[in-house]
Amino acid sequence: MRRYFFLPLTLPFLILLIFLLPILFILFAGTITLAFQKLGLPLPVAFTLFWASLIGSFINIPVKEIRSYGPIVRVAKVSFFGITYPVPYIDWGEQKTVVSVNVGGALVPLSVVLYEVLRLIVLEQNDLLIRVGVAVLISTIISKAFSRPVKGLGIAIPTFVPPLVAALLALTIGAPNRPLVAYTSGTMGVLIGADLLNWDKLKDLGAPMVSIGGAGTFDGIFLAGVIAVLLV
């Protein structure tokens, strides 16, 4: 009977996995910190932003509650000879969807973008500011075209489309500061194109909560900017 029972991971592989986790974490932290440094941020600030993103990924701030009416699944209890059976059925009722914003996956990258844009305004680098605006507009249109609502989950978009688009835009029109154009267009393209422009579809998702940037450091908003910067 032993051949029918086995551990999901063999002991050597489990030990190797435990050994590799710190290394993978260091590589992940170093990659994100490097991306922030390429934006011209000092190492202490870049490292602080990484930890803010990581810790903030556990924090969701509710901003709105959306109410809609539609078919919902309820469960009735039926007793038969003293045994209770759950019987699901379709009913029509009010659905509530709480829309929240994730600190690590949305607010941290948005704060970096706002800082960089304000810096361009203060330094009067209007030409670069216009390039950033054009790149964000193009990235937003493409992100909107590729984003799809997934019922019960949220708004989905192919992972590598936004960073590739942002990197291409940076290489073509971001000559004075390619990392800045890449990060800004990648981050804002997903935030505006995939999330904000699909706001009217959130009520049809059937999810009790939808979080913008909810996957934290693995969310499309966060990764689009970081990967795009690393590509340029």
Rank of each mutant, 00 (worst) to 15 (best):
R2A: 15
R3K: 12
F5H: 12
L7I: 00
P12Q: 02
L20T: 05
L20N: 04
I23W: 12
F25H: 09
L27N: 03
F28P: 00
F28Q: 14
A29V: 07
L41V: 08
L41Q: 07
P44G: 04
A46P: 08
A52V: 00
F58N: 07
F58C: 00
V63H: 08
E65P: 00
E65V: 15
I66W: 05
R67Q: 15
S68M: 04
G70C: 01
G82Q: 04
G82F: 05
T84M: 06
P86C: 03
P88H: 03
I90A: 04
E94R: 05
K96P: 01
K96Y: 12
T97H: 03
S100H: 09
V103A: 10
G104I: 10
L110T: 09
L110Q: 08
V117M: 13
L118E: 08
R119E: 14
Q125F: 00
L129C: 10
V132Y: 04
V132E: 09
A135N: 07
V136M: 13
L137H: 00
I138P: 05
T140H: 07
S143K: 03
S147L: 05
R148T: 14
P149L: 04
T159Y: 09
P162T: 05
P163C: 04
G174V: 02
N177P: 01
Y183D: 10
T187S: 06
M188W: 05
M188F: 14
V190D: 06
G193P: 10
A194W: 08
L196N: 08
L196W: 09
W199G: 10
K201R: 15
I212R: 01
D219S: 15
